[in-house]
C-alpha cells in the first residue's frame, strides 16, 4: 500500500505522487508517515524532508522552510513556504 504524498508551496505544487514513507521534521520532533497513518496535524520546522520512494531505496531529501503537515485518510500533505 502506498502513501499519497503532496508537497505544496505558495508558488507551485512541488511534488505529488505515491511514496512508501516520508519523514517530516516536526516542530516537536521528526515523525515518519507511512500509509494508513492516523489523522494528524503538526507544524514543521525548517529542515529536510526525507521521501522514501520504496522500502529499500535511499531517501530523497527536500529542504523545506516554514509550514505544516497534515495527514488525513487521503494521505500526507506538506504545506511549506519554501521547498528545495
Amino acid at each position: 500500500m502506498a502513501l499519497h504524498f503532496e508537497l505544496v508551496t505558495p508558488e507551485k505544487l512541488v511534488r505529488s505522487g505515491e511514496v512508501y514513507q516520508v519523514v517530516v521534521p516536526g516542530t516537536e520532533g521528526d515523525f515518519g508517515v507511512l500509509a494508513g497513518h492516523a489523522p494528524f496535524m503538526a507544524t514543521v520546522r525548517d529542515g529536510e524532508l526525507a521521501v522514501y520512494a520504496d522500502e529499500r531505496s535511499q531517501p530523497d531529501m527536500i529542504r523545506i522552510e516554514g509550514g505544516f503537515a497534515e495527514v488525513n485518510e487521503k494521505g500526507l500533505t506538506v504545506l511549506a513556504e519554501k521547498a528545495e
Partner: peptide, 18 residues
C-alpha cells in the same frame, strides 16, 4: 471521519502559527 485528529502542538499553537 470519526477518527480524532491529533495535533502537535495543540490546536491553538498551530493556529497561532498558521
Amino acid at each position: 471521519g470519526t477518527a480524532a485528529i491529533e495535533y502537535e502542538p495543540d490546536e491553538e499553537g498551530i493556529l497561532a502559527d498558521l
